[in-house]
């Protein structure tokens, strides 16, 4: 009984908030009838990221994602034209505040509940590229089937911040280009993992953000843990971006006895367009902690910081991430 009450106490507010903010979304490109029963879905919240979309779609289609559900937070860069008539992309438009929707989480929870229940759902940003064990030869669906067979409803990833050799302003990216051509480097060490009590999530910090932008107060550096792939059920909810999922058990990366596979998310934030983005976000103050993160990024950019060091590692393959201890294969043969 107590268990049920505790469950309702958490589930009802989450449901109501998602429903309230879900009302802000307007379906402008409706292809949801194409969603089939066991499809793998991708949910994306974005604002002015049209440049990244062509390659993003390519990459995830190749991995076997069947349908993309976008929340377009008032983009003005012709995002809808980029999507065009693709039959696997549905778009919701909203002008509402990103911050009030808890940085997009309520919108996502709303869509995930409505369209994602019973599906394996990827929740991504357009600058995140998933790498998992055997990703060159096995699809996301095969990964999902394996996890399902083993009784694991979620898949844990670590975000790796990628950067180029020179200044951030020089990392020019063209639509459709593989961002690895521009930013192939990342920090192979300098990560710190820690389990947090409330939701039991593994809090991972480190990488280039901590080293460059938060070197004097590393405790403030942003989290790098993300649980992006979940077999969604109606009452599940993301709490803080995709860093924390509720219920708590979804945050556990492994089985109680042995290891489960985990993945990496290649995060291409530091492209030349980043300065523009940081300036805009600082102006809008729509991000976490008064956009403190963006304030630091901009200061760093103005100091002409070079992110590359002699200890940076060039990304090669998923195997490489396993060798560096950033990813586990678990016992997936």
């Amino acid at each position: 009984m107590q268990k049920i009450l505790r469950f309702l106490k958490k589930a009802i507010p989450l449901y109501l908030k998602a429903r309230r903010h879900g009302g802000d979304l307007v379906l402008v490109n409706d292809r949801t009838t194409h969603i089939k029963a066991d499809d793998v879905l991708a949910f994306v919240v974005l604002r002015n990221e049209a440049v990244r979309i062509p390659y993003f779609l390519d990459y995830y289609r190749k991995l076997g994602v069947n349908h993309f559900l976008f929340v377009d937070n008032d983009s003005n860069d012709g995002f809808l034209d980029v999507i065009g008539a693709a039959s696997d992309c549905s778009v919701w438009h909203t002008c509402a505040s990103y911050k009030e929707a808890k940085y997009g989480v309520y919108w996502l929870n709303y869509l995930l509940r409505r369209y994602g229940s019973g599906h394996w759902c990827l929740t991504l940003d357009p600058d995140e590229f998933l790498v998992y064990p055997y990703c060159h030869s096995r699809s996301v669906r095969e990964l999902a089937q394996y996890l399902e067979q083993e009784g694991k409803p979620s898949f844990f990833t670590v975000m790796l911040d990628m950067y180029g050799e020179g200044l951030v302003d020089e990392a020019l990216y063209k639509p459709g280009q593989d961002p690895l051509e521009v930013c192939p480097w990342f920090d192979a060490s300098g990560y710190f993992q820690d389990r947090r009590p409330n939701y039991g999530e593994w809090w991972i910090r480190g990488g280039v953000r901590r080293r460059v932008f938060f070197a004097d107060q590393p405790d403030l550096s942003p989290a790098l843990n993300k649980t992006v792939l979940v077999k969604w059920r109606w009452y599940y909810a993301y709490i803080a971006s995709t860093h924390i999922v509720w219920p708590k058990r979804l945050n556990n990366p492994h089985f109680s006895d042995t290891l489960a596979p985990t993945g990496c998310l290649l995060h291409f934030k530091y492209l030349a367009a980043f300065r523009e983005k940081a300036e805009e976000e600082l102006e809008r103050k729509q991000h976490y902690a008064g956009s403190l993160e963006y304030d630091r990024y901009l200061t760093g950019l103005n100091d002409n910081l070079c992110l590359w060091t002699s200890a940076s590692v060039r990304f090669q393959s998923w195997q490489h991430c396993v060798d560096l201890g950033l990813m586990n294969i678990g016992r997936w043969f």
Binding site: W202, H254, G325
Partner: peptide, 10 residues
């Protein structure tokens, strides 16, 4: 897990 490598999430 591999010997001598960190295990993420453990």
């Amino acid at each position: 897990g591999l010997p001598g490598r960190r295990i993420i999430g453990r």
